[in-house]
C-alpha cells in the first residue's frame, strides 16, 4: 500500500507501507523526521500525525491506551493519531497523513 505523507514543510511524499508494518515504521523507513522516541510502545506521543479527511473514519478505532497517550501530544486535534498504532493494510492504500509539529 501507499501512504501519502505531508511533512512539516508542506512537502508531499508518496511512500511504501509494507503490510503489517506500522505507519510510524513506514514514515521512519522513508526518512521522514518522526521522532518515535519510545520505538513504537505507545509511550511518548512523538509519532503524532493528523489523518486527512475521510481516512480518519476508515481507520480501526484507537485503543484507550492511544487515546490516553494523545493527551501528551502538544498539538492534538480531532483527527490526531499515533502512527505507531496504525498498521499498514491493503484497505488503507492511499492513506493520507500529515506530520504533527514537534
Amino acid at each position: 500500500m501507499k501512504i501519502i505523507a505531508t511533512d512539516r514543510k508542506g512537502k508531499i511524499h508518496e511512500i511504501d507501507g509494507n503490510d503489517g508494518w506500522t505507519v510510524m515504521e513506514a514514515l521512519r523507513d522513508a526518512g521522514l523526521p518522526i521522532a518515535a522516541e519510545c520505538g513504537g510502545a505507545c509511550a511518548c506521543a512523538t509519532c503524532h500525525v493528523y489523518v486527512d479527511g475521510e481516512w480518519f473514519e476508515k481507520l480501526p478505532k484507537q485503543r484507550a491506551e492511544e487515546t490516553d497517550m494523545l493527551d501528551m501530544a502538544v498539538a492534538a486535534e480531532s483527527n490526531s493519531r499515533l502512527s505507531c498504532q496504525i498498521t499498514c493494510t491493503p484497505t488503507l492504500d492511499g492513506l493520507k497523513v500529515t506530520l504533527a509539529p514537534e
Binding site: 487515546t67 490516553d68 497517550m69 494523545l70 493527551d71 501528551m72 492534538a76 486535534e77 490526531s80
Partner: peptide, 9 residues
C-alpha cells in the same frame, strides 16, 4: 484547557 473532554490523569 485540554483537546478533549477526557483525561489520561
Amino acid at each position: 484547557v485540554h483537546h478533549r473532554d477526557g483525561f489520561r490523569a
